[in-house]
Design a protein around this nucleic acid. Sequence first.
DNA 1: CATGAATGAGGCTTCATTCAT
DNA 2: AATGAATGAAGCCTCATTCAT
Lengths: 196, 196, 196, 196
Amino acid sequence: MAKKTGEKYQAIIDAAVRVIARQGYYSAQVSKIAKEAKVADGTIYLYFENKDDILISLFNEKMGQFVETNRKRVSEAKTAEQKLYVLVHTHLSQLSEDHDLAKVTQIELRQSNQEINEGIGTVMKQYFNLIEEVIMEGMKQGIFRPDIEVRIARKMIFGTLDGVTTSWVMKQCKYELVSHVDSIYNLFLLGMKGKE
Amino acid sequence: MAKKTGEKYQAIIDAAVRVIARQGYYSAQVSKIAKEAKVADGTIYLYFENKDDILISLFNEKMGQFVETNRKRVSEAKTAEQKLYVLVHTHLSQLSEDHDLAKVTQIELRQSNQEINEGIGTVMKQYFNLIEEVIMEGMKQGIFRPDIEVRIARKMIFGTLDGVTTSWVMKQCKYELVSHVDSIYNLFLLGMKGKE
Amino acid sequence: MAKKTGEKYQAIIDAAVRVIARQGYYSAQVSKIAKEAKVADGTIYLYFENKDDILISLFNEKMGQFVETNRKRVSEAKTAEQKLYVLVHTHLSQLSEDHDLAKVTQIELRQSNQEINEGIGTVMKQYFNLIEEVIMEGMKQGIFRPDIEVRIARKMIFGTLDGVTTSWVMKQCKYELVSHVDSIYNLFLLGMKGKE
Amino acid sequence: MAKKTGEKYQAIIDAAVRVIARQGYYSAQVSKIAKEAKVADGTIYLYFENKDDILISLFNEKMGQFVETNRKRVSEAKTAEQKLYVLVHTHLSQLSEDHDLAKVTQIELRQSNQEINEGIGTVMKQYFNLIEEVIMEGMKQGIFRPDIEVRIARKMIFGTLDGVTTSWVMKQCKYELVSHVDSIYNLFLLGMKGKE
DNA sequence: CATGAATGAGGCTTCATTCAT
DNA sequence: AATGAATGAAGCCTCATTCAT
C-alpha cells in the first residue's frame, strides 16, 4: 500500500530528520513532519504505513547508506590494520558531516519504542557483521591476537565509536569528531594486537 | 512538596522497576506503578513531583548505589591494573544480579525523554569520573601509556561495558555476563598499556 | 475496568439518548455526549469501554427495561388473547411515552455498525421469546390455529409493531400511536385464529 | 454534472453491491468500489455526485426494478387474494435470487445515514402504494373486511416480509425463503378477511 | 472522458495530574 | 497522610473529494 520511493518519499524522510533534530522525538508530530516536507498530513500515509514506519524507514535509509559506505571504503583497504583505521575514520567522518542526522540516530531514535528498535535491527546487524569481519581478518592474518573474543571486541569497537559520537552530539558538535580517530584507533589496535 | 524518603517512596521506586521491566517503558503508566506499589494514584504525587521524577529518582537511587559500590570496591584495590579489573568486574556483576534493574537501565530508560536524560546526568558524571580517575592513576603510575587521551579511553571503557550489558539483556540474560570480564579487561589493559 | 453503575453512568446514557435523538447517530460525537451529560470527555471512559459500548449499553438498558415491563404486564393477563392485546398495547404505549428513546431505537441505532447490532442481539432474543411464548400459549389453549408457524407469526407481530412505530417516529410522532392498537390486534388475532 | 447512464454507471453500481455485501457498509470505501468496478477513483465522480449518491442510486435502481417486477406480476393476477399471494411470493422470490443484493438492502443499507434514507423514500413509497392498492382492491371486492385500516395492514404486510427476509439473510440464507410464502399468506389473508 | 496522486478536516481515546473527601 | 474519581489536552490516522495531466 505504501510506496517507498519517489521524490516525496525522500522529502518526508529528510523533513523528519530535520524536525526530530530540531524539536526532539517526542515533539515530532506527523503534522509537523508533513508541514516541513510541504505535503498534506494524509500524503504521509501514501508513503508510510504509520508514524513508526517513518522512523524505521528513516533509520534504515540513512544507516543503510552509512553501512554501505563504510563497507565499501573498508573493502578498499588492504591490511586488517588499515581496514580498522578506515572503519573508525569513516564511522566518525560520516556522522560529522550531518549534524541533524547524527543527533537523530545518536539521541532521538534511542527514545523510540520497541517496534522501532526491532525494525532497525537488520541494518545494525549488517554493521556488526562488518566490524566482526575486520576483526576476524586481522586474526587470520596474524595481526591481532588469536585469543580475541570476536563479539566482545566488536562490542568494544561499536560501543566506543557510539559513545564518542553521542558525547560529541551532546556537546553540540563543538569539536572536531575526526580528530579523535588516531586515539581511538590506537586503543583498538593495541588492545587487539598487543602481547602481555 | 514531594518528600523523597520513607517506606512508600522506596516501595514506589521498586514497583516502578518491576512494572517497567515487565511491561516496558511505554506501558508503565503511573496508575500501574501505583497499583504495583499498593498505593493510590494520588499518593505517588506526595512523593514525586511528576512521572519523570519517578524515573529520574529511580535511576539516581539505583545508579547512585551502583556507582558508590563500584567506587568503594575500586578504592580497595591497590594498583591501577587491579582497579581496572575490579571496575570491570563490579560493573558487570552488579548488573548481573538484578535482571529487572538491568533491563530498565539498559533498555527501557533509554526510551525516555530529554528531561530524564538530563536528570540522570549527574550520577553518570560521577561514574565517568571514577573511570577517568582509574585511568589517570594508571598513567601516573606509569602502567598505562602517557599518550592516552583520558576521555577517549573512558568512553571506550564505558561504551564497551554498556554495549556488552545491553546485548546480554537483549539476549534475555541467558549467559553468564561476568564470564566476559577477562576478555574485556584484556582489551582495555592492552589498549592502554601497549607500546607501539 | 469500566464500571457500569452509578449516577454518572445513567447520566451519560440519558445524555446519549438526547444527543442522538437531536443530532442523529452520525453527529453524536463522544465529546457532545460528554458535554450534554456535564462530565469530561475522559469520564465517559470510566464507565464505558468505548463509543460502541455506550450505544450497546444504552440499548440494553432501555430495551431491557422495555422487555421486562412488557413481560410483566403480559404475565398479568390471563388468556392468550388478552396477553396478545396487552403485548401490542404495552409495546406501543411504552414507545409513545419517550419520543427521544423511540427515535433512537427505531431510527438512529439502525444506522449503527455490526458490533453494535451483535451487542443488542441478546435483549432482542428475549423479546422474541416473549412473543413466541404468547403465540404458543394461544395454540396450546386452542385459541390460535394449530398450524401456525410460530417463528413466522412472531416475525409478523414484531415486524408490524416495529414498522408502525418507525412510521410514527418518521412522521414526527404527530398522531396517537396507541390509537392503532385495536386495528393491529385484530389483524394478528384473526390471522392466527381464523379457519380457512 | 453526473451522467447517470452508461456501461460504467452500471458497472459501478454492481461493484458497489458486491463490495458492500462482501465487506459491509463501513468498509465499502469509494476506492474499493472503484477498484472492484475497474475504474479510477475519480471516474466515480463523473457518474455520481458523491458517495451517498452511489448508494441511493444503487437502491433506487435495484429496488425500482424490484417494485416494477412486483407491480407487473401483481397486475397479472385477477382476484385480490391472488394478487396478495403473488405479492408475497414475488417479494420473497426476488430477494432469494440475489443474496448479495438482499444482504445490502436488508442489512447494510440500514446502517446508512439520514440523507440516504431520505433518498430512497420515493421508491419505497411506490412499493407501499402497490401493497395498499392490493388491500383496497380486496376491500372493494368484499374479500377483505371493510373495517381494515389500510395503512396499518400495509405496515403489517411490509413489516412481516421485511422481517422474514432480514432473518433469512442474518441466518446466512441457509433455508428456502419462498417455503414460507404460504404461512405468511395465510396470516395476512385470515387477518384481513376473517370475521369474529 | 479518464486518471490517481494529493488533499485536509475531523474524532476517538489515553493518561498524567488534581483535589474534594 | 492517603485516596481515587474526575479531568481535558493532545495526536494519529482515514477516506471522500478534487484537479492537473
